[in-house]
Amino acid sequence: MKRKLTYISAVIISLLLITTITASNSEPDDTPVALVKKIVKDVTHRSGQEGAWEEAKTGIPLKNGEEVRTGYKSLALVLFTDGSGLIRVRENSILHIYGENVDQKLSKNTFIQKGKIGFDVQKQEDEEFKFTTPTAVASIRGTAGSIGVTDTTTIITCRRGLIGITTQTSSGDLPGGKTANINQKGDIVITETTASEQEQHNQTEQTETKTIKIRTREGILEIDYYPPLGQGN
C-alpha cells in the first residue's frame, strides 16, 4: 500500500511538473530545452501533440513539450542545453522533451512513449533528471544506461551510477551492472545484466552509420544507414 502511494505520489508530482511546465510554456521563454546533435535517416519532430511532424535537421533546438520521433533504422542524438547529458534515441521511438529553467537550473523530465533510448548524464547538483515511461519513473544522478519501452514492459539497464526507480507498486535503486524489468503491474525484477541485455544496451550506444555506394547508370547511389547489431561500429 505504501509503495502504491509512493508511486501515485511520483506520478502526480511528474504530472504536476509536466502541467506546470506546460503552463509555464505559455509564458515567453525562448530558451530551448534540448537540441538535436545528430540525425541518421528518418527523424521528425513536432511542437506538442497538436502539431504536425516535421523533418528534423542537425542543430535544431527543441523547446519544452516538443517530441522527437525516429523511423526504421534511424537515430537521433539529443543534447540538453544545460550540457548535462546526451540521449541517443534509437529507431522507432517517440520521445517527449520537458524542461523547466528555474534559477539557472534546468529540470528535465523526458517521457519515452515507445522505443529505446540510451543516455549518458553527468552528475546533477540540484537539478532533476527524470525519465518517465508508461509504467515507471527513473530518477537519474550521474548515470549511463538505457531504457526500452514496449507495450507491456519497461527494461532499464544501468551501466554505471545509480538509478532510482518508482512504479505503481514498487520502488528501489538500480546500481551499475544491473537491469530492471518492469511489467504493467509495476513489479520490478532486478537481475545482473545478461549478455543479451548488455548487447541490447550496447546497441543504444551506437551512434555511427555505415554507407553503401551503389554504382548505377544514373550515377552513384549512396545509402547511409544505421547498422544492425553486430555489423557496424
Binding site: L35, G59, T81, D82, Q104, L106
Partner: peptide
C-alpha cells in the same frame, strides 16, 4: 555540411 556551434547560457547569471 552539418556543422553547428551551440553555446548555452542557461546557468549564466
Amino acid at each position: 555540411e552539418d556543422m553547428f556551434i551551440s553555446i548555452s547560457f542557461i546557468k549564466a547569471p
